[in-house]
Simulated assay, not measured.
Amino acid sequence: MSTSVEADLSVLSFESTVPRRYVHRQSVSEVFLTDCVTDSEPDRFVLGAQWPRAHAFYRGQAGRYDPMLLAETLRQCVIYLAHTHYRVSLRQHFVMQTIEIDAELDRLGIGAGAAEVAVTVVVSDVRRRGSQVTGLNAALTFEVAGRRVGSGYGRAAVLTAVEYETARWGVAGPRAIGSVQDGVPLDAAAVGVPGSGDVVIGATARRGRWQVLPDLSHPVLFDHPSDHLPGMLMLEAARQASRAEFGLPDVDMVSMSVQFHRFVELDCRAEMVVSDIDGEPGRVHVVLEQYGASMASATLLLESATGARPMPRARHGA
């Protein structure tokens, strides 16, 4: 067993990925984790991850790795540890409630090979009902070649089948899922993605509001079938809506803090509501609304490749 960060890193392997089931992915190509070593300190782990230089979807700006890779790697780390070290069954429902990331954009440059990422994770506030874990928190630090490239925080809940049914459907109980809402995607260039198939928002008749357009055939955002809007799609929609709102497709995330409040349905219209924050250049508040209620909320700090940040503007009318 390792007793220091240096010892952890010396034995960390990047030769192959962990079993895909432990990170809730169907495609092996979407599994970023490669290894996990423990420490003498309880609830502390170091995990290996590899980021491809040209991912099919998460492609950064200005020759940098996409900061969204931090969020997806965080998600995989928390789920993996829950299943492999905290006795959370694969049959239980795992729900991310909070995802926070802070990226060191100037240290995310793409080099000559795939990035080998060492992720230090400290798990805390492990909640239990008897011997069963019902939730946990995790603080993460990301390093590449010994340099810190970002940090993150995640909060997750583990639900029984009954708890999931209640959270998912409410007192009305399960229902049949209808057709996904139609909409016209924005031009890819307007939201800083390489192709039209990666656009996840469309314009609406109201300023400051952007329709979320899930594509159930998307090979990354819908890596496996889902009967609700995946969390990573919500994060991407928040980023694209912010870029479209400011007309700045080249800005990217320095940081993102997202809270998921309720499940978002695929067959009912959902919209991203974007507003800037007075006195804080580059900081944006985004709310995902469905049925007129807040289903998720996020605060983003945006910055261009030159270091410029969007300036607050006059508030939009309704």
Rank of each mutant, 00 (worst) to 15 (best):
H285E: 12
A296Y: 04
G279Y: 04
V23G: 08
V126P: 07
A189R: 15
V171W: 00
Q290F: 05
E72P: 08
E303S: 13
L12A: 07
G197Q: 07
S40N: 04
R269N: 12
S255N: 08
W51N: 04
A314T: 13
A203G: 10
G146R: 08
A172C: 02
A244F: 00
I201Q: 05
A270E: 10
L105T: 02
V144Q: 07
Q61S: 14
S151F: 00
I201V: 15
F94G: 07
P230M: 03
R147K: 09
H218Y: 11
E104P: 04
G135N: 10
P310Q: 11
D198M: 12
Y58M: 05
L213R: 09
A7C: 02
M232K: 11
S275T: 15
L186G: 08
D39R: 13
G197S: 10
V180W: 00
S4F: 01
C268W: 10
Y22Q: 13
P42Y: 04
V133T: 14
E143L: 09
V258D: 05
V193D: 02
L301N: 06
R107G: 03
M256R: 01
E100K: 14
L288Y: 01
I110Y: 00
G130F: 06
P52R: 05
S40H: 08
V258Y: 09
V171T: 11
V122P: 07
Q211I: 02
Q259H: 14
L233A: 03
F14V: 04
P249D: 08
V220M: 07
L266T: 00
D215V: 11
S27M: 02
P225L: 06
A145Y: 03
V193F: 03
V95L: 15
A305T: 12
S16V: 13
V158W: 06
T17N: 14
G247L: 04
T166I: 12
V220N: 00
L105W: 01
T38F: 01
R53V: 10
A270D: 05
C77A: 15
M68W: 00
R44L: 12
S10K: 14
V191C: 08
G195C: 15
R75A: 13
G63D: 00
G292P: 13
P281Y: 03
P230C: 01
L233E: 01
Q240Y: 00
A56V: 15
S242F: 01
G282F: 05
G48Y: 05
Q76G: 15
W169Y: 13
P52A: 02
D102S: 12
R155Q: 15
T120F: 10
R315L: 09
D252M: 10
L301G: 00
R44I: 06
R129V: 09
V31Y: 10
A161I: 08
Q76V: 14
S275Y: 01
D8Q: 15
V78Y: 07
G48V: 09
P42S: 07
M272N: 09
P174A: 04
Q97N: 15
A203R: 15
R313F: 04
S257R: 15
L81S: 13
M232H: 10
A298K: 07
D102Q: 06
S217P: 00
S151C: 08
S4P: 07
L140Y: 05
Q92P: 12
D35Q: 11
Y58E: 02
L235D: 07
Y65I: 01
N137I: 01
V264C: 01
A114C: 10
L229C: 08
V212C: 09
A115F: 04
P185V: 09
L233H: 05
H55D: 08
L9Q: 11
A305Q: 06
L69V: 05
P19G: 12
R209C: 04
